[in-house]
Design a protein around this nucleic acid. Structure first.
Lengths: 236, 236
DNA sequence: TTTAAATTCAAACGTACATTTCAAACATGC
DNA sequence: GCATGTTTGAAATGTACGTTTGAATTTAAA
């Protein structure tokens, strides 16, 4: 029989567990498409067929790897969002963004380096094609993210909804890309600035950056046309 | 014989040209690894073997696709950077970032939707594994980007170099991710806000966002430890 | 027109992949 | 200890890939 992903197999590292551990590492490093089941089962020291036996397919394995973190993270985030929404006066933007920090870092309890690995996987999920992952995210966790939008809206009442939409996606891009190339960046940072940077360091560097970015003054039409004059686009 | 990428074959669409056009579209949509030469040659309506005949390998095709834009964009950027570096008093951050707009939009002359396609390809180049592309970028255009760093440094003299390093990469992520998912975002924006958005619109929305982000106040140690208290990380 | 090079073409090659198969090993409750 | 259900194992299947080949065709110079 197969499945039973959420169940408590535990005790000694089961085959499922070994597969998940190897898969997340390789997926985070190399992306989903560029990681083969043979690499995974070889690193996990299990038989090739066991992936399809336990998870059904590679696609479902990918989702299982993400689920392990999402089922921990999203309820925590939901709880934080709900708490912030309950207070009387609106929260500041940096307050809103700060609630990500603890839940994310608690992913380190799920697995060593869990926070980094999860964010890398999230990045892969958005940049690799993997259409099923986008659907997967929205279908399961769309409600939670709606609360985030509401909170940011309250924190930045002057921001038009469409501008807020774009800026939240800009911010998602910042996080996701940073995490996808995290290893390379951390290496360079260490070599060039002699600065050891862990995932917590990166997250804390992101906060002021994103706070300022999302709350930036909206460019007026005159400013825009002055900044980038002439140049008729042929595009679209 | 093969190669002669920069040459003026023109007249009627040559096989090389047709391959490049099809390849850039598919690469931008699906990424490098997930696009097969068979898809490309089928869309281009040329023989499968012609890719290897004209470009040598898939890897070299990828580089050729990018080169078509880079050879136009980078000298233009270099010229703008040099101009800004020549003026007496330092430029503001938004002045520095604004110089990207025109050179980018001029890529629409290289090919229809060239600016969007190039930025999407750039994103793929950073997020897909493709180690050779990172080397390719740095080797050919590292000098130009050094000037950008210098300009931003002058515009934000209070920013420590390591902080600047991270923020520039955050910004790269913002741009690259936005462009990679540009199509999906533009669709949503149009559906939800009845707002037609082209590549120029996105770029102009990015400017104030990035300006504010890069110039954000640097979080002090006390601020950091207050924002995210306790929670000892087990990571790394 | 002849000739040689450049290009196209259909076919094949070798490799790697996800997935399936089915027998063997293992565990578990009776 | 036997029988039953679960998990593993080695091997094979079929598909898709990048690349190579060599003959056919087109191009362009002599």
């Amino acid at each position: 029989m197969r499945l039973n992903i959420g169940g408590v197999m535990s005790v000694k590292h089961s085959t499922q567990h070994k597969i998940l551990d190897a898969a997340q590492t390789l997926f985070a490093e190399t992306g989903f498409t560029d990681t083969s089941l043979r690499q995974i089962t070889s690193m996990a020291e299990v038989n090739l067929a066991s992936v399809n036996y336990h998870f059904g397919s590679k696609k479902e394995l990918i989702q299982a790897v993400l689920q392990r973190y999402l089922v921990v993270l999203m309820p925590r985030l939901d709880q934080e969002f709900t708490r912030l929404l309950a207070v009387q006066q609106p929260n500041s933007l940096s307050q809103v963004l700060s609630v990500f920090v603890k839940p994310l870092l608690e992913l380190n309890k799920v697995h060593q380096n869990g926070a980094r690995i999860f964010l890398q996987l999230l990045g892969r999920g958005y940049t690799d094609v993997q259409g099923h992952l986008r659907w997967f995210f929205n279908h399961h966790y769309g409600r939670v993210l709606d609360k985030l939008v509401l909170l940011v809206q309250q924190a930045c009442p002057d921001l038009p909804p469409s501008e807020l939409f774009w800026r939240l996606h800009f911010s998602l891009g910042t996080v996701v890309f940073t995490m996808a190339s995290n290893e390379a960046l951390a290496e360079i940072a260490e070599a060039d600035f002699n600065e050891k940077v862990d995932i917590e360091g990166v997250i804390l560097r992101l906060l002021p950056y994103l706070s300022a970015a999302i709350a930036a003054p909206v460019a007026t039409v005159t400013q825009l046309s002055h900044t980038a004059p002439a140049m008729a686009s042929e595009g679209r």
